[in-house]
Simulated scan of single mutants.
Amino acid sequence: MADPTAPGRHPALDVALDGRVAHGSDVVVVLGDARVAARTSWFGGPFHQLRPAAPVAAHRGDRLLLQDVDGAPLAAGLVLDPAAPRHGTGNEVLIRLRRVLDGLRGAPAPPPDEPGDEALAAADAALRAAGPAGLVPAPADAPAVGFLVRAGRAVALGDTGLHVHARAFARAEEAALARGSAGAVRAQHLAQDLGVPAPVAAALLAQLVAERVLVPGDDGLQVRGRR
């Protein structure tokens, strides 16, 4: 498979997928009859960038499939920007991609009182500073937190009213998967790994179950698909 990071790089695809694909994964993009190798970059929530090893003919709104290098399905999604520059994530990127996705889905226009950049930056900074232990009720500026959740920058933990930054949640997921590679995943172990109270670890694990990363097993929670 060609290296998508090699010289002579091609325009990237900003996409929304129906499942998170790990950052830096080597994948195969299937668009109609075309198949091309690519590498993933995860921005937050459903939003990813695909960095292809060869030019890809695509249009905004095109449907695509992602497979692993052995041909197993990983995710399906929509093309948001078929000729994107290679970039990282951030509030501005996620807000732009969320608005494109909402437009493709026919969602109503954002309300005139949509949180401004300052409110979004402040909410993002507060959640980021809290880390994996930052499971607190939405602050007074709840609309900003809600927008960050819709943009994939924050994770709402069920209907508890508690939120955590997406990057902190990803760290919690990595720790749970590491535990799960050797056996059952339990709240007390995740609490030790992350340095958080057991109730916080339990809330994180409940969300991982809700997202089908973990499943209940005979001896505790297990990584989905592991026997």
Rank of each mutant, 00 (worst) to 15 (best):
P7Y: 05
H163S: 08
A206Y: 05
D141M: 03
V196Y: 11
T160A: 08
G152K: 00
L31P: 02
L194N: 05
G158P: 05
R153F: 01
P110Q: 08
R35W: 04
A166T: 05
A154I: 06
G158K: 10
G24I: 11
E114P: 00
D33P: 06
P137I: 12
A187R: 00
R39N: 08
D102G: 13
V79E: 00
L148I: 05
V155T: 06
L194R: 09
R167P: 00
A138T: 09
A144D: 01
H48V: 12
L120C: 06
L135Q: 06
G44Y: 01
A182S: 02
V145Y: 02
G103S: 14
A123W: 00
E174I: 06
A34C: 03
G195M: 10
L13A: 04
G225H: 13
A203F: 09
D81Y: 01
A154V: 11
D3L: 07
R9H: 09
R60C: 09
H189K: 03
R224S: 10
A38I: 03
G183H: 03
A2D: 14
L66Y: 04
H165P: 03
D26R: 15
V164C: 02
V200G: 04
A109F: 07
E118V: 15
A140G: 13
D102H: 10
Q188F: 15
A6V: 13
A119D: 14
A109D: 14
A53E: 07
A142F: 06
V215H: 12
D3P: 01
A198M: 11
A53P: 05
P82G: 10
G45A: 13
D117L: 10
G19M: 07
F169E: 01
Q222P: 01
G88I: 15
R51Q: 14
R226S: 12
V36A: 04
G217V: 10
L94C: 10
R171Y: 07
G71D: 14
A84M: 12
G131W: 04
A175M: 03
A83N: 10
A184E: 11
P197V: 10
D102Q: 12
G44C: 07
D102W: 05
A168G: 09
V28T: 15
E173D: 08
A54E: 09
